[in-house]
């Protein structure tokens, strides 16, 4: 009984270590191909547009409401503690810029673009289109992975900045209509305390997230086996893994940034 359980756990761990190793190989070979062959400019542009367009509205919406709820919660708490809603703009702006903007946009992008990539590459894999790429003189890493990774690196920061803005705007709306804070006070709260450092704090995170999501989705797609069912499985697991990775990596990147004083 116990040995069987141990065996199962053991083989699961081995499989995990193995796929981590293979994913690392994917990162390595993308560096090799990036150095040795010209960039697929058109593909990269196409992917940027796709990721951006697909995720823009959802990111803006979710962030707007996140900003609204942040303002409402902060307002209620600070009213209870201090008898009046203070520093609402500051709290909303700090939370959005340092944490929620990057994380919200990364989660949205995992669910939309990450899933789309895993499904597309997965389908190509089970229908031998990936093999066809090899036989026609290119390579899936060069033709598919690198453009997607670069597109994520280019687009996710932009989405995060939009997300910051719409969150702060959402907070402004609630501050004015529900908490009775004048707009000018709100914006003073925002800009009196916000520095470039916080902005970079958020921005650096988005690059880490972009790398995680793009590599996980591409890896899951390219290792798909087992027909249509396999495509479904790898899509789901790409989304779950990217979202988990975003939240886990978020902690560690934050810890590093705090340690080196970019807070």
């Amino acid at each position: 009984m116990i040995t069987r359980a141990l065996k199962t756990v053991g083989s699961k761990m081995l499989a995990l270590a193995q796929s981590a190793g293979k994913a690392a190989m994917l990162v390595r070979s993308s560096v090799v191909w990036l150095a040795r062959s010209p960039l697929e400019g058109r593909q990269t542009m196409l992917q940027m547009v796709r990721i951006g367009v697909e995720s823009f509205m959802v990111t803006a919406m979710t962030s707007f409401f996140t900003g609204m709820v942040l303002a409402l919660q902060t307002g209620a708490s600070s009213k209870r503690l201090l008898n009046e809603p203070l520093f609402i703009g500051t709290v909303v702006a700090f939370s959005m810029v340092k944490e929620l903007g990057p994380v919200m946009s990364a989660l949205v992008v995992s669910g939309r673009a990450g899933a789309a990539i895993a499904a597309e590459l997965g389908t190509m894999c089970v229908t031998e289109q990936i093999d066809a790429l090899y036989t026609l003189g290119t390579d899936p890493v060069r033709y598919l992975v690198i453009p997607r990774v670069l597109a994520f690196l280019a687009v996710l920061p932009v989405l995060a900045i939009f997300s910051d803005y719409s969150g702060v705007l959402g907070g402004c709306l609630v501050a004015k209509l529900k908490l009775g804070i004048p707009t000018s006070v709100y914006w003073h709260d925002v800009f009196d305390y916000l520095e470039n450092k916080q902005f970079f704090h958020g921005l650096i995170k988005t690059y880490a997230f972009a790398l995680c999501i793009s590599y996980i989705s591409c890896y899951k797609g390219l290792t798909t086996t087992g027909g249509a069912e396999g495509v479904g499985k790898s899509t789901t697991s790409a989304v779950v893994m990217s979202m988990t990775a975003v939240l886990v990596v978020d902690y560690f990147v934050t810890a590093i940034l705090v340690a080196i004083g970019i807070t």
Binding site: E120, T123, M124, T127, E128, Q129, D131, A132, T135
Partner: peptide, 13 residues
């Protein structure tokens, strides 16, 4: 080499 796949393997995009 040129390779003609059994199921075609055309790029459907």
């Amino acid at each position: 080499f040129g390779y003609c796949f059994q199921e075609g393997a055309l790029f459907d995009s």
